[in-house]
């Protein structure tokens, strides 16, 4: 019984939150890694792209709620998602046209593009705040829980409850579908293959007649889609606040780099690795330990390795370790 209780606690406080957070990071990191693989720079504006897209999703959600449109138990934001993606894709394509294309034509060094993307980041940041404000916004509606803690206790007779939020389940399911679709696209379709070819060897891709501008445009659209989906899922799971999305940039980049920049599989693995490390290292293990260990060994302290305030330090530390010992990332991406 104690062991079951321990497992439930672990699921409730570590596995489920980390899995959904990991899925969010993975989706974000996929966008970063695609941009890196094709456009050859680290897009610092990705966090704010997520924020912008989510802001649009929220505005459309409000409009739908006012009009009485909903999805029943599922959050209305899902219906608003396509609008958010369309608006964000339009924004990044316009940005590419106005800003990035110029530097691409100059064959600018990647580091210059990184700085350029920081400029874009500040602009997007401002636009988002101007549009929707800086406050925390909760826009989740529909059924809040898939499994409720009290009901779970009653049902199983265990002392510990298990809560599984709709948004968490949705995150994991959506992430699986999106990742499967993305891999299918990259590995099976002509356009997807041409993107990989362009990422592999730009000059040879040109010789083969692949149109670089088209590849770039498709990349931006996919990256925008991934960013908005990741941002919306994160907002549903936690809450929307522009500054948090800006901060999310660090774990997202850490995921992409730890997995190997330019390698989509690495981005996913990196996302989950970062998420589980963050949650695992900042979780107070006392409860689990009390259940598992014999009474004489029961811990006095909280068994929390780091305060939750330090969760970003975990991403940083992992990032530094990987860069020191395996600069191309765990899955052999391109070097940073």
């Amino acid at each position: 019984m104690d062991l079951l209780n321990a497992i439930v606690v672990l699921l409730n406080f570590v596995v489920i939150p980390a899995a959904s957070y990991g899925a969010q990071l993975a989706l974000g990191a996929l966008g970063v890694t695609l941009i890196y693989g094709i456009l050859r720079f680290s897009n610092f504006a990705h966090g704010d792209t997520m924020a912008f897209g989510t802001a649009i999703v929220i505005l459309v959600t409000w409009a739908m709620q006012a009009a009485g449109i909903g999805l029943g138990p599922l959050p209305t934001a899902l219906l608003a998602l396509p609008f958010g993606i369309a608006a964000t894709a339009a924004l990044v394509l316009a940005t590419d046209r106005v800003v990035y294309r110029f530097y691409r034509r100059q064959k600018a060094a990647p580091v210059i593009l990184v700085i350029v993307s920081m400029g874009v980041m500040f602009v997007m940041n401002g636009v988002t705040r101007f549009m929707i404000g800086v406050d925390e916004i909760r826009f989740e509606d529909g059924a809040r829980f898939l499994i409720n803690a009290t009901e779970f206790r009653k049902m199983t007779g265990l002392k510990e409850g298990l809560a599984f939020k709709t948004s968490q389940a949705l995150t994991i399911v959506t992430a699986v579908i999106v990742v499967a679709a993305l891999f299918w696209f990259l590995n099976r379709t002509r356009t997807g293959k041409s993107m990989r070819a362009y990422s592999d060897n730009e000059d040879l891709a040109l010789l083969s007649g692949i149109n670089p501008e088209r590849v770039v445009a498709v990349t931006w659209i996919i990256a925008a889609g991934l960013a908005v989906i990741a941002g919306t899922l994160y907002g549903l799971d936690k809450a929307f606040k522009p500054f948090n999305y800006f901060q999310l940039l660090l774990p997202v980049f850490a995921s992409a780099i730890v997995g190997g920049l330019g390698n989509p599989l690495g981005a996913i693995a990196g996302g989950f690795l970062i998420a589980f490390s963050e949650v695992g290292l900042t979780y107070a293990w006392k409860k689990v330990a009390t259940y598992v260990l014999p009474e004489s060994l029961a811990p006095d302290g909280l068994l929390q390795i780091l305060s939750t305030d330090y969760k970003f330090a975990v991403s940083f530390a992992l990032l530094v370790v990987v860069l020191l010992f395996k600069p191309t990332g765990l899955f052999k991406g391109k070097a940073v």
Binding site: R190, K193, S194, R196, A197, S199, D200, N201, D203, L204, A205, L207, S208, G209, I210
Partner: peptide
């Protein structure tokens, strides 16, 4: 056929040929 870097290294042989036929 360039002298060096004349394949797409991460793509399979078949995909390399497909990319050759892209046009």
């Amino acid at each position: 056929v360039p002298q060096v870097n004349n394949v797409f290294p991460s793509m399979s042989v078949e995909e390399n040929l497909e990319m050759g036929a892209f046009l």
